[in-house]
């Protein structure tokens, strides 16, 4: 590959005392893409972002950010990126406007027109003292400060936590705009619909390792399609077909979870049995996610999934 990714992490590990936070993490974010970084609480998402920001130092592996070393070239790297932390802490006695301008100046300047536009978009009162802001409003301060800069790379750590649905929608519009402008976004989230709506590619992190990465369409092939069909006579041995799981038969109705590879033989069997009606549900990111964490889904065994 000629052009290296905007973010390149290879085998990065990080320990805090006896706790292993990152355990050989690989992550590549390409130029101009919105990359969803998914994982449950404590999987290592924030640790990864903090490593990329040079706030933490990796114990092993290599990390490059915009072609530079995130630990050594802090000022040079940071001039080209903007960051929104997951938990925004502000100085209680400064106003939102003061904080936005301070961060903008430290970043190397922000565009006043964009600042005004995003303040209006997020409906944020910049004259209020930070101590009177709600969690959502603190988040907006950080978002406006980041979006008003002319960064190439945006590192967003669960940026919509605390935002109401209307503001979440505004935020999605902003991310799409960034992509249209050719900027790169690394969006950490545990909200699947958000990542699904915005991301070109996703990486799924579990216990400090990226366990799956790729385009959403590609990843979907790894998951099962939910199929429900009405047939004349239910054929026997459906559950013995390769890639077919959780077969449930009620009268003439068959429902099952089918892997991509098992769809063709399954459909053939159903057609032969006199298929009269068919509904199928495409796999969602949620399925993919649950496959890796196996939480809250009765009857789905995670081992052979």
């Amino acid at each position: 590959m000629l052009m290296a990714g905007v973010v390149e992490m290879r085998g990065v590990s990080k320990r805090f005392g006896t706790v292993t936070a990152l355990d050989g993490l690989d992550l590549t974010v390409e130029q101009g893409e919105v990359h969803g970084f998914l994982g449950p609480n404590g999987a290592g998402k924030s640790t990864t972002l903090r490593l990329l920001l040079g706030l933490l130092r990796a114990d092993g592996g290599s990390a490059r950010l915009l072609g530079m070393d995130p630990w050594r070239d802090v000022a040079a790297v940071h001039r080209r990126l903007a960051y929104v932390p997951g938990d925004v802490a502000l100085w209680p006695n400064l106003t939102g406007g003061e904080v936005i301008d301070l961060l903008g100046r430290l970043q190397g300047g922000q565009d006043p027109a964009r600042r005004a536009r995003y303040l209006a978009l997020f409906d944020l009162d910049p004259t209020k003292k930070a101590r009177t802001y709600s969690k959502g409003n603190r988040q907006k301060v950080a978002l406006v400060a980041a979006l008003a800069t002319d960064a190439e790379l945006f590192l967003l750590d669960e940026p919509t936590s605390g935002l109401d649905p209307l503001m979440e929608d505004a935020f999605r519009g902003c991310v799409r705009e960034l992509r249209d402008q050719g900027r790169t976004v690394l969006l950490s989230s545990h909200i699947l619909s958000e990542a699904e709506a915005l991301s070109d590619r996703v990486s799924i992190i579990r216990a400090g390792r990226v366990v799956e990465t790729g385009r959403l369409e590609d990843l979907r092939h790894l998951t099962r399609t939910s199929v429900t069909a009405d047939v004349g006579t239910v054929p026997t041995g459906l559950d013995l077909l390769p890639g077919v799981h959780d077969v449930v038969v009620v009268n003439h109705r068959v429902s099952a979870q089918v892997e991509s590879s098992g769809l063709a033989p399954f459909m053939k069997a159903l057609t032969a049995a006199g298929l009269s009606s068919l509904t199928s549900q495409p796999p969602t990111l949620e399925d993919l996610f649950l496959r890796h964490y196996g939480a809250g889904r009765p009857g789905q065994e995670r081992a052979n999934a």
């Binding site: 903090r50 920001l53 903007a82």
Partner: peptide
């Protein structure tokens, strides 16, 4: 953390 994420 917020300040060090800038060019500071």
């Amino acid at each position: 953390e917020l300040l060090l994420s800038t060019a500071t």
